[in-house]
Protein backbone atom coordinates (compact mmCIF):
# COMPACT_ATOMS: atom_id res chain seq x y z
CA UNK A 1 0.00 0.00 0.00
CA UNK A 2 0.98 3.60 -0.51
CA UNK A 3 0.01 6.86 1.15
CA UNK A 4 -1.06 9.71 -1.11
CA UNK A 5 -0.93 13.20 0.44
CA UNK A 6 -2.74 16.36 -0.66
CA UNK A 7 -2.12 19.94 0.45
CA UNK A 8 -3.63 23.42 0.07
CA UNK A 9 -6.27 23.61 -2.70
CA UNK A 10 -5.73 19.92 -3.50
CA UNK A 11 -6.76 18.97 0.01
CA UNK A 12 -9.89 21.10 -0.38
CA UNK A 13 -10.72 19.34 -3.68
CA UNK A 14 -10.19 15.82 -2.33
CA UNK A 15 -11.66 16.51 1.10
CA UNK A 16 -8.84 14.63 2.83
CA UNK A 17 -5.15 15.16 3.45
CA UNK A 18 -4.17 11.50 3.13
CA UNK A 19 -5.59 8.47 1.37
CA UNK A 20 -4.29 4.89 1.16
CA UNK A 21 -3.97 3.35 -2.27
CA UNK A 22 -2.04 0.55 -3.92
CA UNK A 23 0.05 2.41 -6.48
CA UNK A 24 2.99 0.02 -6.34
CA UNK A 25 4.87 -0.08 -9.66
CA UNK A 26 3.08 2.93 -11.13
CA UNK A 27 4.82 6.10 -12.25
CA UNK A 28 4.06 9.57 -10.92
CA UNK A 29 2.29 10.55 -14.12
CA UNK A 30 0.16 7.38 -14.00
CA UNK A 31 -0.84 8.13 -10.43
CA UNK A 32 -1.75 11.68 -11.45
CA UNK A 33 -4.09 10.24 -14.09
CA UNK A 34 -5.61 7.86 -11.53
CA UNK A 35 -6.23 10.73 -9.13
CA UNK A 36 -7.88 12.83 -11.82
CA UNK A 37 -10.30 9.95 -12.54
CA UNK A 38 -11.01 9.41 -8.86
CA UNK A 39 -11.45 13.12 -8.03
CA UNK A 40 -12.83 15.08 -11.00
CA UNK A 41 -12.48 18.38 -9.06
CA UNK A 42 -8.75 17.82 -8.66
CA UNK A 43 -6.52 19.94 -10.88
CA UNK A 44 -2.92 18.73 -10.92
CA UNK A 45 -1.59 21.12 -13.54
CA UNK A 46 1.48 22.95 -12.24
CA UNK A 47 1.58 20.54 -9.29
CA UNK A 48 4.81 18.75 -8.41
CA UNK A 49 5.10 15.37 -6.76
CA UNK A 50 7.35 14.26 -3.93
CA UNK A 51 8.17 10.64 -3.14
CA UNK A 52 9.24 10.04 0.46
CA UNK A 53 9.71 13.78 1.00
CA UNK A 54 11.94 14.39 -2.04
CA UNK A 55 10.79 16.07 -5.26
CA UNK A 56 10.21 13.46 -7.96
CA UNK A 57 9.90 13.50 -11.74
CA UNK A 58 6.88 12.28 -13.75
CA UNK A 59 8.71 9.07 -14.69
CA UNK A 60 9.68 8.01 -11.16
CA UNK A 61 8.11 4.72 -10.04
CA UNK A 62 6.52 4.06 -6.66
CA UNK A 63 7.60 1.06 -4.60
CA UNK A 64 5.56 -0.64 -1.89
CA UNK A 65 5.39 1.51 1.22
CA UNK A 66 6.41 4.74 -0.53
CA UNK A 67 4.54 7.94 0.25
CA UNK A 68 3.66 10.23 -2.64
CA UNK A 69 2.68 13.84 -1.97
CA UNK A 70 1.26 16.34 -4.44
CA UNK A 71 2.86 19.75 -3.97
CA UNK A 72 1.12 22.83 -5.41
CA UNK A 73 3.32 25.88 -6.07
CA UNK A 74 4.57 26.91 -2.65
CA UNK A 75 3.80 30.26 -1.00
CA UNK A 76 5.63 30.26 2.32
CA UNK A 77 7.89 32.98 3.67
Amino acid sequence: MNKVLFFAHLKDAVGEEVIELDTNGKSVVEIKELMKEKYPALNLENVMAAINEEFASDEDILQAGDTIAFIPPVSGG
Binding site: F7, A8, I71, P72, V74, S75, G76, G77
Partner: peptide, 19 residues
Protein backbone atom coordinates in the same frame (compact mmCIF):
# COMPACT_ATOMS: atom_id res chain seq x y z
CA UNK B 1 9.83 24.56 0.91
CA UNK B 2 6.35 22.96 0.93
CA UNK B 3 4.46 25.64 2.85
CA UNK B 4 1.29 27.33 1.57
CA UNK B 5 -0.70 30.32 2.67
CA UNK B 6 -4.39 30.91 2.37
CA UNK B 7 -5.41 34.56 2.36
CA UNK B 8 -8.66 35.49 4.05
CA UNK B 9 -10.25 38.76 2.90
CA UNK B 10 -13.53 40.43 3.76
CA UNK B 11 -15.07 39.01 0.58
CA UNK B 12 -13.54 35.55 0.46
CA UNK B 13 -10.49 33.33 0.72
CA UNK B 14 -7.90 31.92 -1.66
CA UNK B 15 -4.87 29.69 -1.59
CA UNK B 16 -1.99 31.78 -2.92
CA UNK B 17 -0.70 29.97 -5.91
CA UNK B 18 2.93 30.79 -6.63
CA UNK B 19 6.07 31.61 -4.75
Amino acid sequence: VPIWKKEHWEDGQKWIGNQ
